[in-house]
Simulated assay, not measured.
Amino acid sequence: MTDPTQYRLNKYISDTGFCSRRQADKYIEQGVVTVNGEVAPVGLKVVDGDDVKIAGKALQQKPDRIYLAYHKPVGITCTTERHIKGNIIDAIGYPQRIFPIGRLDKPSEGLIFLTNDGDIVNKVLRAGNAHEKEYSVTVNKPITANFISKMASGVPILGTTTQPCTVTQVSKNTFKIILTQGLNRQIRRMAEYLGYEVIKLKRTRIMHIRLAELRPGQWRLLDKFELSQMDQLLQHSSKTANDCNANEHDDEE
């Protein structure tokens, strides 16, 4: 007989949708969380079936997994902080607690996932897992063959050199780029290093999911086929950063 899976208490609470891990930590520190009738210490691990209560209120069972594709418009901020005007949570208005997987800059638009499943976030984002993200980028002056070559081979930014990537010219001022990294404002910094300014950036694909017909501000739930493909793609992906660039900043372009 195998031992039951153990979960950190803050994660267990968060996974029920009651609150974030950060808020769960605060409740634990305040001594208002009990497990099987005993006040829970910081760092406690629990298993399914434990009686977890916050201020005497029993937690509901873990909800079904939610995966949502959203076409983030320009001007929306990828934060769960509700006091920030134009935050992504209020923009979508989903009835259950969800959070974005990674980020897109406020001036950028395009595809972003939101979920209630904290286990897949790093699996999607970590560069070492090599999951592709595709962007359409328009710059302020005509693109040259030298620009395409240097963008593809790697550019020094943020104290490191970007990993080789696929870059294809689409028109005089527009190119397509496929990344597996997610450094802070990576594409904008790469272009700036080469003397260009990004004037429009749209993410059109994450792994096997495309923006397709979603218009700015629209969202949809991923279907069963897409989720099955995602499970296969993430099956051997790491949740840790041990094999990844230390400068990675969770997918903010």
Results as ranks from 00 to 15, higher is better:
3 D>S: 13
6 Q>K: 15
11 K>N: 09
13 I>T: 08
25 D>W: 03
28 I>F: 07
32 V>P: 02
40 A>V: 09
41 P>H: 12
45 K>G: 04
45 K>D: 04
47 V>L: 03
48 D>L: 15
48 D>S: 10
48 D>M: 12
49 G>P: 07
51 D>I: 13
51 D>H: 13
54 I>L: 09
56 G>A: 11
58 A>T: 12
60 Q>C: 06
61 Q>N: 14
61 Q>W: 00
63 P>M: 10
64 D>Q: 14
65 R>F: 06
66 I>G: 04
69 A>H: 03
70 Y>W: 06
71 H>I: 06
72 K>T: 02
72 K>L: 04
76 I>K: 05
78 C>T: 15
85 K>R: 14
87 N>T: 11
87 N>H: 10
93 G>M: 11
97 R>P: 10
100 P>Q: 09
102 G>D: 08
103 R>P: 02
104 L>Q: 04
104 L>G: 02
106 K>V: 14
109 E>M: 07
112 I>R: 02
112 I>P: 01
117 D>Y: 07
119 D>W: 01
121 V>S: 11
136 S>C: 11
137 V>W: 01
139 V>S: 03
140 N>M: 04
142 P>E: 15
145 A>L: 13
150 K>G: 00
151 M>K: 05
154 G>V: 05
157 I>M: 09
161 T>C: 08
165 C>K: 00
166 T>I: 15
167 V>D: 00
170 V>P: 00
174 T>A: 13
176 K>I: 06
179 L>D: 02
187 I>F: 06
191 A>Q: 06
193 Y>R: 12
203 R>C: 07
217 G>W: 07
218 Q>H: 10
220 R>A: 09
221 L>A: 14
223 D>L: 10
224 K>Q: 14
234 L>V: 05
238 S>V: 01
240 T>D: 15
251 D>Y: 09
252 E>Y: 08
253 E>R: 13
